[in-house]
Structure formats: structure tokens, C-alpha cells
Amino acid sequence: MTALTDPPVTHPAPERPAARGRRRSQAGRTMRGGKLAYAVLIVAVLVSAFPFYWTIVAASRSNADMAQVPPALLPGPNLMQNFEAVMEEADIGTALLNSLIVSGSITLGTVLCCTLAGFAFAKLRFRGRGALLAVTVGTMMIPPQLGVIPLFMLIAELQWVNQLQAVILPGLVSAFGVFFMRQFLVQSLPDELIEAARVDGASSARIFWSIVVPIARPGMAALGLLTFMAAWNDFFWPIVALTSSEPTVQVALRQLGGGYVNDQSVIMAGTLLSTLPVLLVFGLLGRQIVGGITQGAVKG
């Protein structure tokens, strides 16, 4: 029996430069969606969006409005008042600023580190390359949450508890990012280009900045978006490493949800404020995020 061949893949491996996906989906299956398809999707969109709408309703009402039957279903007049209350009670202002600093630094640093390392793994030959890549990919699936205890001991040793770098530096480690950039560059950076630059006598750094980075830019952008959202939304490590005197928005939300504030509409106002920045990014660049996720998934 030659039944040992891998899964029943009867088709040739699909070639997949990034641009192809979109073209195929248009020319692809001819099946047109019927009414049922639209109905299913509209329900899915409503379910996805409703909690956002509800947050706005709750954040613009008073606590008394929230505690009545039937519940209020339309936005009310108290939005600004609740924003002010939550600024005062949970210091959401500082939290937003800190989150911006933390997520921004993590995004820049991660994209840079991962592009550098991804380039080396994709196009340079050096001793130990295979082993190092294997270690990186191998740890990709291990949740960093499992390392928080030693990490906390390390941060305590360095006296970094409650300082932003305690969240930023560990946040820069992205094995997924290295793998993502490697895959991107393997496919989109032709060897000949680098060789030609070499022949012309360009230095290694020069090649990186003037050839690799321009070509890697779409991949860097996708990785940057995913990294920013993940950093903004990261929960476990920030609540361990920071306190409410130096909070990120997630730390502030944990405080809000911890029974410290009892006014539901104030809590919802905080939730709304903390979510607005990512929603903004998502609204502007949602398409690219969708692209980044599907790319990462197909490649990963």
C-alpha cells in the first residue's frame, strides 16, 4: 500500500503571492449567494455589532436607566458626564496615554526586530540557522502566559514593577512576527536583487534599508496592525506588572470591573473609551487587518 501519502490533497499546492487571493475570490466560485446567505450574514453582523451599540447606549445613560425593566434601548444624554466620571474614578486619561506609549513602542520595536530577523532567516546563510528557526517556530504555540511567574520575578529583581518598560520589553518578543516576516520575504524578495546590490558593492546595512525594507513594507504594515491590536488588548501581563497608579487601559478596565465602581453606565463609558482607539484603527484599516489575518493563517 502506498497509502502513506499525506492527507488526501489531490490538488497541486496552491501558489499564493499575496495579491492572488483577492483576484481568485472574485473570479473564483461562480455560486451566487441567495437570500438565505444574506440573511445569515446580516444576523452575524448584527450579533457582532450589537454589543458595541449596547455599550454606547449604556455609556450615555444613567445608572438608574440601566436598572429598569424594560431596559433602555436608545442612547441617552449622559455620555459626557459619564466620560468625566470615569476619567476621575479610574484615570482613563492616563491609561489611554500609557496604552498608546506601550502599544506604539511594542509595534515599532516588534516590526523592526522581526523584519531584521525575518530577513536573515529568509535570505542569509549562517551557521545554526535551521536550529534557531526551529526554536523560534517551536515556541510560537506556547502561550507566554505560562512564563509569567519567572517573568514577574525578573521584573521585580530589576525593580521595574509598575513601570511601562516592564510591559514594553517582554511585548517585543514575537516569534510569530519573525516567522511571518520570513515567509513574506522568502516569497517577495528576489535573490537576484540582493546579489546585484552586492556586486555593486552595497554594504549589508545599505541593502537592508534600501532594498529589503521597501519590499517588506506591506508585510511590515500587516504585522504592525496585528501587533498594535494585540498589544493594546493584552490583559494578563499588564495587570500583573502594573498597578492602577500607572495603568494601561486594560488595567483600568480590570479596576472598573473589580467592584471598585458600581455605576454601570460609568463602567460602560470606560469600556467605550478604551475600545475607541482600536475601533478607529479598525475602521480605517480593517481591510488590511482582514488581509493580515488570512495571510498569517495560510502561511502559518
Binding site: 454589543p51 458595541f52 449596547w54 455599550t55 449604556a58 491590536m229 493594546w232 488588548n233 490583559f235 487601559v249 486594560q250 478596565l253 480590570r254 472598573l256 470591573g257 463602567i267 460602560m268 469600556t271 478604551s274 475600545t275 482600536v278 475601533l279 484603527v281 479598525f282 487587518i289
Partner: peptide, 10 residues
């Protein structure tokens, strides 16, 4: 796109 914390509170 929402955080665990925000989603859970809602």
C-alpha cells in the same frame, strides 16, 4: 478587535 476586558464587561 475588542479586548477581553471590554468584551467581558459588556
Amino acid at each position: 478587535a475588542t479586548s477581553v476586558a471590554a468584551a467581558t464587561l459588556v
